[in-house]
Amino acid sequence: MKAIFKRELKSYFTGMIGYVVVAAIFAFISLYYTANNLVYASPDFATALYSTSLVMLFVLPALSMRSFADERRNKTDQLLLTSPVGIPSIVLGKYFAQLAVFAVPVLAACVMPLILSLFGTVSFISCYAALLGYFLVGAACIAVGTFISALTENQIISYLATFGALLVCYMINSIQTLFTSGNTLAFIVFCVILAVAAVLIGLLCKNVTVGSAVFCVGAVVLVLLFKLRPAWLLNAFNQALDALALFDPFIEFVSGMFTFSGVIYYLSVIALFLFLTGQALERRRWN
């Protein structure tokens, strides 16, 4: 794991990507910090961080896009997978290298509240809690990107797909408001999801009857629920959307509510996607 971590980290800074990512993130944080805190003299560093969270959507996919896609295209994954190193070590080595790159601008930003404190009173707890939230949400984005990178061998597809996925997560709140009215819409969405799942299951099992059976059973359950307990569907739907709202806990951190459930949410997202990355690599050996 150490070998992969070192190589990966070095390669980010042999090429351009490492510098670009560090520079872009740091530049935007500095920009808002200068405008909000230094010029406008606001002690609220968290707002500056919140304003730059959109930058992550553009920059972090560039960090993660190459992690596995590039290995696969250059066939260097053959070296890693035939070495006496387990898949978890490979995934973690690569993931920690990306985290290390992302940590550079975050650590640099740690100085900013200290500078502010020279001019007045600053709530260090809220500043550093927001920075921790910033780092965690970035780490979760990188985990998502790493997983998507393991699915393709094209870096551009990897970048765009990651960007798209993160954008949906970013906008999920406004998407959600579209759906709060009307149980019918939730029902239709669930039907579509069920249909897609049934087709996937059918394809995986290479069996039409299994796919159809899944769809029929699911459809009956959905119709019954819709007729008897329509509110359940809507609630389940909203909760599913809530889970996708990757940036929500961060926004809570920024507004001064540090919660452990938020930290645990990010850690679980990271663990889930790294696990899925490992599974994607494992599965590829069987095809």
Binding site: K2, A3, S11, K75, D77, Q78, L79, S83, P84, V85
Partner: peptide, 24 residues
């Protein structure tokens, strides 16, 4: 493998050091 799994952005020594470490 058929296509040598080389990281083209490394020097020969760096690459060999990496592989040696990878192999424990």
């Amino acid at each position: 493998p058929e296509q040598p799994p080389l990281y083209t952005d490394m020097t020969v020594r760096e690459y060999l050091m990496f592989v040696a470490e990878l192999k424990g």
